[in-house]
């Protein structure tokens, strides 16, 4: 049981009469990279929002490292070690790389000054460098404001946060949806680095090639339910598409959708 990073049972979310997520049972093991696939509106993002505390679930339980958790907000989740790279990048354009990495959790000195406590720029720069090196992110000048960076560099900065803070679980919501080919490759490299370091990851993606390249296991959502749990070795793109479109439903999920 100890190697289960995240477990959900009967995780359910209703928006009024809309059953956006229905009875999701899910497990993620240590060092495992899992992809979540499904059509638009299938419940992928809803599932993630329940785990990260962005929304409050209607029903169900969530365990993180064997401990039942109930996050009041995304901050709680982050403090517990879940780092999320959101579809909309949560970066402050006018700040530079270390500022963004440490936004809301700055390293400070003179803490008796309360809100006017001093920023320890040096320590934050060093930690940023270490974090970027770990993910092999190349950014020419970390003092540049985010505004002046390409989409890929921004995405890398967002992802580098996870590496800097040694998160227990990383969740990426379509990290390459808006990126070019080269930038996508860079982000995928970072994901591989996380894999080598044994950091668990949930990846939401529409990109079949990417999913087949990167992850160990694929979970397919359809109309708010999990309809398949596929090991990468035992499936292929066509198979997954069949599950996504509803042509097939996993044996253990029969009757679910």
């Amino acid at each position: 049981m100890n190697d289960i990073v995240l477990k959900t049972q009967d995780l359910t979310k209703h928006y009024g009469g809309v059953h956006a997520l229905e009875g999701a049972d899910f497990e993620l093991r240590a060092g495992e990279h899992v992809a979540i696939m499904g059509d638009n509106g299938a419940g992928k993002s809803t599932f993630v929002r329940q785990i990260t505390g962005v929304e409050q679930r209607t029903r169900g339980k969530v365990w993180l490292y064997g401990k039942e958790v109930h996050f009041a907000g995304p901050l709680d989740a982050r403090e517990a070690g879940i780092e999320t790279v959101f579809q909309t990048l949560a970066l402050a354009d006018d700040l530079d790389v270390p500022d963004n990495l440490f936004l809301g959790r700055e390293i400070t000195k003179w803490n008796w000054l309360g809100p006017f406590r001093r920023l320890d720029y040096k320590a934050m720069r060093e930690a940023t460098m270490a974090g970027l090196e770990k993910t092999a992110v190349k950014i020419p000048n970390i003092r540049n404001s985010i505004r002046n960076m390409s989409g890929g560099q921004r995405q890398c900065v967002a992802i580098a946060r996870t590496a800097t803070f040694h998160s227990k679980l990383t969740i990426m919501d379509e990290p390459t949806a808006a990126l070019g080919v080269q930038e996508t490759a860079q982000v995928e490299n970072i994901i591989r680095t996380l894999k080598e370091d044994g950091e668990p990851l949930i990846l939401i993606s529409h990109n079949m090639r990417q999913v087949m390249d990167l992850v160990d296991r694929i979970i397919v959502f359809r109309r708010g339910r999990i309809v398949a749990n596929l090991k990468k070795e035992e499936t292929d793109g066509q198979d997954v598409v069949a599950y996504i479109t509803g042509a097939k439903t996993g044996a253990e999920f029969e009757g679910a959708a």
Binding site: R78, T88, A92, D94, L95, R105, P115, R117, R118, L119
Partner: peptide
Amino acid sequence: YTVYGKHTYAIGSNEDAARMSGI
């Protein structure tokens, strides 16, 4: 050089990001 200043800039740059970052 203070957290107050950094958060002031962060809110003006991207209020949602600031909120999501726990400010």
